[in-house]
Amino acid sequence: MLEKLFLNHYEAAAVILSGIGLTNLLLQRNLIKKIIGLNIMDTAVYLFLAAKGYVEGRAAPILLENGAGGWLRSSALYVNPVPAGLVLTGIVVSVSVTAFALALTLKVYEAYGTLNIDEALLKMTQEQEEIESEIENAEEKVLV
């Protein structure tokens, strides 16, 4: 069991990291920390993919010269380019999602003056109750 863990240490690290990221994303109450958790989780997946895509002794998938003016075309010399492509796509996605989440966090901070999502909820319900009580007062005055 432990041997396998050491043999696949990249994958093990990726799983641990993604666990850390996921718990941060779910359990942190501070919005910025939540977003950091999201980034840790995404990075863990990229580590996993990059580790899966790497084959010892093979070159990046760009044609190598064979020294006689030609190219080395054997597919056994190169790694599969798809995992790297997936990592790149994933990075683009996570950058845009992070930017959007930060923009929304800024909006929430402007509105409630706090980064804690529970406090924001509390303030929102308090505001609603105040508005409702004002409406009730106004209605009572009209009735009087």
């Binding site: 993604s18 990221g21 996921l22 919005l31 999602v97 959007f100 509105a111």
Partner: peptide
Amino acid sequence: PETARAALRYLIMSLVGSGLVMISIC
């Protein structure tokens, strides 16, 4: 303010979901 908070909450839950989808696809 209400929609900003609702959108952020929606985004966080959605990101948990798509993170799991991505791990699974990998």
